[in-house]
Design a protein around this nucleic acid. Structure first.
Length: 573
RNA sequence: GGACCUGUGGUGCAGCUCGGAGUGCACGCCGCCCUGUCAAGGCGGAGGUCGCGGGUUCAAAUCCCGUCAGGUCCGCCA
């Protein structure tokens, strides 16, 4: 039907007779003897010159037959990849007429998202969306190539699976053949892939769809895609190496440039310096410790176990109301208060608490934060964890560029605590999941000091977004029982919840470790987007609706009956 | 469950504080003119439940209350 794509023709093709197919972009008509039609397909746009009148409209689908020729002197368009040439002596065949599009099919303006999603098939024609879809396809291909090269075997796992009562809320699917029973759509192939290790697959990977019925965000959809992988007889370092290769290969395929090797940082270090377990390394503003500076202070506000601070470049110009807002934010995040000092000429400090500071305290605040004239110093005095996380939140709020902008800064965060917080019964909660292997040297602490146990769990972070996480898994039942006991899970509980996994582990489970990272997030950042919806063909809105299809929608009574489902409609107002 | 922002011809905006006739800008659409444009240009025209409901008022896009939708965030996401 066509001989070439629109966007690939160049000056070297001059003289070639071509037949092109695509959509009508802009038209520039000069009466009945001359018209220019921009013809667009996924590869780009080329100008067709019509020497008579032609009736084509915006977004009509046409085929153009003509000859590639250089443009006359002075009419070259440097803004177009095909701008040195045009198609002359055109005959136009209308393949399909079209209504005027609901919004312009170009990248200069963005229609509102509901309109874009309702007419997604039009939105996808825009160069931006074509670029994003194709970038994502290259990312997928590069990941597959890297995993294949490293000896991994692609295996598909079920979407209809057993409910697993740990972790995030799952979507349920009624079983037609077993009324009253349900499948769950898997939040991840976690248990399936561990069973593959018992099954001797050795190195498994899958570009897997995961489903979680949790509230949506800019970086979260109900359904998302992960590179899911697991390897037998592999250490933490082995897995991090496999994943690094896949991610860097994907980044190179997307951007044309291979990033340097990925830095590492312990969880404790990330919390101490950045106040978060997903540090954004694109900017500095690191947390500094002022506890020693205020060890003997007379200032009540600083009489706390820990005093930490950040310097905000240029922040001295913040208005009082802005500072009040930041204080509010800090309090909502759990701090008892927020101390601020503008750095003025001298340098000197200016702020409500300044007059209570001793000269040496002033000096050490300036020295430790490295702040200079025009900067702002924000300090939180609290218990260690709160001081860190509140300042980490403020650091991101004040310093972090949009996630898709600037350099791509990957970092491995390692040595997570095994347990984080307590559940309603006062038992420690698993920070990663209950099959995560503690460091061998920390095993004795399971009894004495569970909070101090470090696990062999690791996250991959890019520009402050968590790309994914993984761990070395427990393959020995004695350690697993010990961890379950610490979590307050009895043997009977464990058997009921994960019996099929524990059963499998009694038949020769190899030591294994794995990882999973979000391809939507990686593709979005590599595409320079701040929202994963921009790299998903048919995303849902924040309330989980699809404006294109109208989903979710009620089911016909007959369908419900077949499934054995009776709908309880909540009482109206 | 909560906080904040947004909703005005097909699209993107302004108008809202300080109430006075659906007022304005750009694009698109329809018609006519135009032989080198490229966000073509010129002339003319059509197109509106100011998200929805209620209230205040002589009078509401504008003020108040409620509600719906969309977005960002908190909670949630082992």
């Amino acid at each position: 039907m066509r001989t070439h794509l629109c966007g690939v023709l160049r000056a070297g093709d001059a003289g070639t007779t071509v037949r092109l197919c695509g959509w009508v972009g802009r038209r520039r008509e000069h009466g009945e003897h001359l018209a220019f039609v921009d013809l667009r397909d996924h590869s780009g746009i080329i100008q067709c010159v019509i020497d008579n009148s032609v009736d084509v409209r915006s977004e009509w689908v046409i085929a153009v037959t003509g000859t590639v020729r250089p443009r006359p002197d002075g009419t070259v368009n440097p803004g177009l990849d095909t701008g040195e040439i045009e198609i002359g002596d055109c005959t136009v065949e209308v393949l399909n007429e079209a209504e005027p599009p609901p919004f312009p099919v170009d990248d200069r303006t963005d229609a509102d998202e509901p309109v874009r999603l309702r007419y997604r098939y039009v939105d996808l024609r825009r160069p931006r969306m074509q670029r994003n879809l194709r970038l994502r396809a290259r990312v997928n291909a590069a990941i597959r190539a890297a995993m294949d090269r490293q000896g991994f075997c692609e295996v598909e796992t079920p979407l209809l699976w057993a409910p697993t009562p740990e972790g995030s809320r799952e979507f349920s699917v009624p079983a037609r053949l077993h009324h009253g029973s349900f499948y769950a759509l898997p939040q991840s192939p976690q248990l399936a892939k561990q069973l593959l290790m018992v099954g001797g697959v050795d190195r498994y990977y899958q570009i897997a769809r995961c489903l979680r019925d949790e509230d949506l965000r800019a970086d979260r959809q109900f359904e998302f895609t992960q590179l899911d992988m697991e390897a037998s007889f592999a250490t933490q370092d082995d897995v991090m190496g496999f994943v690094t290769e896949a991610v860097l290969n994907a980044a190179e395929a997307a951007t044309g440039e291979r990033p340097p090797d990925i830095a590492r940082m312990t969880w404790a270090d990330a919390l101490d310096r950045y106040g978060t377990d997903k540090p954004d390394l694109r900017f500095a503003m690191e947390l500094v410790d002022l506890t020693a500076a205020f060890a003997d202070t007379g200032v009540k506000a600083f009489a706390a176990p820990v005093v930490k601070a950040i310097g905000v470049p240029g922040g001295a110009s913040f208005t009082r109301s802005r500072l009040d807002q930041l204080t509010e934010q800090a309090k909502r995040a759990g701090a008892s208060g927020l101390a601020w000092f503008r750095v003025t000429a001298g340098p000197a400090l200016e702020g409500p608490l300044d007059r209570f500071l001793s000269e040496s305290e002033r000096g050490r605040v300036l020295e430790k934060t490295g702040a200079g004239e025009g900067d702002l110093i924000l300090a939180v005095a609290d218990v260690y964890r709160t001081a860190c996380t509140v300042l980490g939140m403020l650091r991101n709020a004040l310093g972090s560029p949009p996630v898709g902008q600037g350099p791509h800064r990957y970092v491995w965060v390692t040595d997570f605590p095994m347990f984080d917080g307590v559940d309603a019964s006062g038992n420690p909660q698993a920070a990663h999941h209950p099959f995560t292997m503690p460091y061998a040297e920390d095993l004795p602490l399971l009894d004495s000091d569970p909070a101090a146990v470090r696990s062999q769990a690791y996250d991959l972070v890019l520009n402050g977004w968590e790309l994914g996480s993984g761990s070395v898994r427990i393959h020995r039942s004695d350690i697993q029982s010990k961890v379950f006991a610490t979590l307050g899970i009895t043997d009977a509980d464990a058997e009921a919840r994960f019996g099929f996994l524990l059963g499998a582990f009694r038949y020769g489970a190899p030591p294994h470790a794995g990882f999973a990272f979000g391809i939507d997030r990686l593709a979005a950042i590599l595409a320079g987007e701040e929202n994963i919806r921009e790299v998903i063909a048919y995303p849902k809105t924040q309330s989980g609706a699809d404006p294109l299809t109208g989903a979710p929608s009620p089911l016909p009574a007959a369908t419900l009956a077949e499934l054995g489902i009776r709908v309880v409609v909540p009482p109206g107002p």
